[in-house]
């Protein structure tokens, strides 16, 4: 093969590689998760994530997203895998809005029906959490407590 030809091929390959890199759009790791409901599968249980209000997700430092159909599955999955997480996202039980898990107040009760039966609800305001907690005489957790809570204290299904 002649030298100019080789140089040409090399150039083509570089251009190709560059354009491929350029095509990969930068993920903003701060943005709220986007979930294709009814299509995506829960990382923990393998079921379809279809109930928006119950869905949870966390983002890894590299921008990748782990999606769960139940807040409890996220807790469970994180306990089992212990990944380094950038942000945990949960839905507010009352408004259905995304929020950072560390900002939320959690109520765990068997009386709450969630897709995988973990029965955990997240609240932006402590008052909302208190209301539900009182109704079912259940405790309120913060995120760190929930991640580390003894299994026996949570509804039976996180095992």
């Amino acid at each position: 093969m002649s030298t100019p030809k080789r140089v040409g091929i090399l150039l083509l390959m570089i251009i190709g590689a560059l354009s491929l890199i350029a095509c990969q759009s930068e993920v903003d790791i701060e943005t709220t998760p986007e979930i294709a409901y009814g299509e995506v599968i829960c990382e923990q249980c393998g079921m379809i994530v279809s109930e928006e209000a119950q869905a949870a997700a966390y983002r890894l430092p590299d921008g990748n997203l782990r999606i769960f159909d139940d807040l409890g599955d996220m807790v469970l999955y994180h306990r089992l895998n212990g990944e380094d997480v950038h942000i945990f996202w949960v839905h507010d039980y009352q408004t259905g809005e995304w929020m950072h898990a560390p900002d939320a107040f959690f109520v765990a009760t068997e009386d709450l029906v969630t897709p995988m039966g973990h029965g955990i609800a997240a609240f932006t305001y402590e008052a909302g959490a208190e209301h539900l907690a009182n109704e079912h005489s259940a405790p309120i957790y913060r995120w760190d407590e929930l991640l580390e809570a003894p299994l026996a204290d949570l509804p039976r299904h996180i095992d």
Partner: peptide
């Protein structure tokens, strides 16, 4: 069928 279609899933 479907994106997570299974005949049966055992978990």
């Amino acid at each position: 069928r479907g994106p997570s279609g299974y005949g049966i899933g055992l978990k």
